[in-house]
């Protein structure tokens, strides 16, 4: 079918003039319009990133920028951080949290998208309702699950009791053995709509004629999925996985608002560790060093993922 990519370059609007042939006036306008965004990004993204790298290279506890920049340069922060057991634990927690959230969120997102792509009454309304969790602030998601998973009065334990599964008061967020699962649950709830949205849009772009042809050829539902549906949604679905992996990797609100990384560091991901190091221990230098390592990890992941995606879409 369409697995052999067409030799033409990616279709963009044709006949766009190249930069060199832009008229001087147009070029000036182009830059003028970009200027405020450039200024904002330079002042509020590039400069802060530079400050982070500077901080990570300056041992000491200075809080003011001027004080900080007068500290001598050195690698002591990195030395301290790399010998920190909490750092390696946080790497592990981040990996478990990211993968553990991503898989169920993707599975739910895919299944719901396939269901809501079918025609049935009131579909538009039900679809809006299904996607609502996406718009719930992380903090609100967090406190809602904190209440539902409360040990004594939580509705989750009540349901387990009524179903006769367990009589124990499971303290989901407080017990170190269940805390990770407890922070993953709200994360999945908030992030599956993104997959549903992306995959629904991709499903809409698959021509109905492909399904008709498959039916004429006697393809089963499963064969239709493997040979028509999945090739049609694979690219946006994998991109969505990549983006969501990055967002989950840096997630802060849901975990901090429920456990603050506890109990005993059981849910302390890198994003939480960075924050606690800076604003609970007031060690900005080591926090910045952890942050630099975190960014480097994300960058390595993106490079590897892009290589994989490029192979995939060749």
């Amino acid at each position: 079918m369409t697995s052999a990519a067409a030799p033409s370059p990616p279709a963009g609007p044709p006949a766009r003039r190249r930069g060199s042939s832009l008229k001087a006036g147009e070029r000036r306008l182009a830059w003028l319009l970009l200027l405020p965004a450039f200024a904002a990004v330079a002042a509020l993204v590039a400069w802060p990133l530079y400050v982070i790298v500077q901080m990570s290279l300056r041992p000491g506890r200075a809080l003011a920028l001027s004080q900080l920049m007068s500290q001598p340069l050195g690698l002591a922060n990195y030395e301290r951080v790399l010998n920190l057991p909490a750092l390696w634990a946080a790497y592990g927690h981040s990996a478990v949290y990211t993968v553990g959230s991503l898989i169920p969120a993707f599975a739910c997102g895919l299944v719901f998208a396939l269901l809501f792509h079918r025609a049935f009454p009131a579909r538009r309304w039900l679809r809006s309702l299904l996607l609502l969790p996406w718009a719930v602030p992380g903090v609100v998601v967090s406190i809602t699950f904190l209440w539902m998973l409360d040990a004594s009065y939580g509705v989750a334990n009540a349901m387990l009791r009524d179903a006769g599964i367990t009589r124990a008061d499971i303290a989901w967020f407080v017990d170190a053995r269940t805390a990770m699962a407890a922070v993953i649950a709200p994360t999945v709830w908030k992030s599956f709509p993104f997959f549903t949205i992306t995959i629904l849009a991709a499903l809409q772009s698959i021509p109905a004629s492909l399904y008709e042809a498959a039916r004429v050829d006697g393809a089963t539902a499963r064969q239709q999925f493997v040979h028509v549906t999945w090739p049609g949604i694979r690219r946006p679905a994998l991109l969505a996985v990549l983006l969501n992996a990055l967002w989950t990797f840096r997630e802060f609100d849901i975990i901090y608002a429920s456990t603050r990384g506890g109990p005993a560091g059981a849910t302390e991901t890198l994003g939480i560790l960075v924050y606690r190091e800076a604003f609970e221990s007031f060690r900005f230098g080591t926090a910045a060093a952890i942050g630099v390592l975190m960014l480097a990890t994300a960058a390595v992941f993106v490079v590897l993922a892009m290589r994989f995606l490029r192979e995939e879409f060749r």
Binding site: G19, L29, A37, V41, V45, P48, F252
Partner: peptide
């Protein structure tokens, strides 16, 4: 308007979406 510099700017803008909030809040 497509100039090479603007393509780079677009990529830079996209990359900034990856910054953790709990990190950028420090600077």
């Amino acid at each position: 308007f497509h100039t090479p510099a603007q393509k780079a700017a677009g990529a830079a803008l996209l990359l900034t979406k990856m910054l953790p909030g709990s990190l950028i809040v420090i600077p």
